[in-house]
């Protein structure tokens, strides 16, 4: 602490750090601690049983799998959207830019109902797709679709400022120094945007993992097949099974924590690498 104080040019470090810790503690740690405490009040055996029940395992598979798939889809197409919005000027660009935020603002239940109406076998898109043998609503594919919808803004909005800060002249310089297209992208562009790209994808993934409102409408909620982990938690609560609900919540939390930690490490590594090059 003393070390910091001697070197910091900015005053108020102690006060702001204290406030930040207090705020984080109140908003983030307190509810999580309550959850852990609640979990600890049930026996280990009950928790372990609830965590590893076949229905719970199936729901983790779906939740993590669909969230990851949705985040990857968003990583690719979110990048394209961000790129287009930053690099090109075209009529209606501002409208498109505003559209990106809609999944943030729309109540997720509305999104879920809209997607279900569209993709159910009686819907505008569901009917032709069903004729092609592709069922979307009430299948894991529908879950992925809803999660892709809500995750898109995270990738676009984290990439945009980084792309904007990236001067096109750098690419021109690379080209003039003899780098080909591929080399420019791989060695100049990618290292600069990779940290933000990873962050955006991680945010989209984390958001998808916790999503409930939009998914329960389109998933069909069939046990073992299309039941996401947050729904299993709700289901257990409604049966007054607090131990079971807590066990799954803690599992979900621990897994997310590990995954986000891993992504942060990856991001730090790629930032370092980008800086070195």
């Amino acid at each position: 602490m003393r070390f910091e104080r001697r070197h910091s040019v900015l005053p108020g470090f102690g006060l702001t750090l204290g406030f930040s810790l207090f705020y984080l503690g109140l908003v983030v740690l307190l509810p999580l601690a309550a959850l852990a405490l609640k979990a600890a009040s049930f026996g280990w055996e009950a928790l372990w049983q609830a965590t590893t029940a076949p229905r719970a395992l199936a729901s983790y598979r779906l939740s993590f799998g669909a969230s990851l798939a949705a985040a990857l889809v968003n990583a690719v197409f979110g990048f394209v959207v961000a790129w287009v919005l930053v690099r090109y000027r075209f009529p209606g660009r501002r409208v498109v830019d505003a559209l990106v935020d809609l999944p943030f603002a729309l109540p997720t239940a509305v999104a879920g109902i809209a997607l279900t109406s569209l993709y159910a076998e009686t819907g505008w898109l569901g009917r032709p797709l069903a004729a092609l043998g592709l069922r979307v609503a009430f299948t894991p594919l529908g879950v992925g679709l809803a999660l892709t919808f809500i995750g898109l803004p995270f990738v676009v909005r984290t990439l945009q400022p980084v792309l904007e800060a990236l001067d096109p002249e750098v690419e021109e310089a690379a080209a003039s120094l003899g780098a080909g297209r591929a080399a420019t992208v791989l060695r100049v562009l990618l290292p600069a945007v990779a940290p933000a790209w990873l962050t955006g994808t991680a945010l989209a993934f984390a958001r998808a993992l916790g999503e409930y409102g939009s998914v329960v409408f389109i998933s069909g909620n069939m046990p073992m097949r299309t039941e996401i982990a947050p729904l299993v938690i709700m289901t257990k609560l409604e049966q007054y099974d607090y131990a079971g609900a807590t066990a799954i919540a803690v599992t979900l939390l621990a897994a997310s924590f590990v995954l986000l930690g891993a992504i942060n490490l990856l991001q730090a590594w790629s930032a370092r690498r980008g800086a070195v090059e």
């Binding site: 279900t116 009686t122 009430f138 909620n221 069939m222 046990p223």
Partner: peptide
């Protein structure tokens, strides 16, 4: 059963509005 909604009103909507 193709879809299990969480509540009675949800099922009514699935059947009545969505035609499932």
């Amino acid at each position: 059963v193709p879809v299990l909604d969480t509540g009675a009103r949800g099922s009514t909507n699935t059947f009545v509005q969505r035609g499932i």
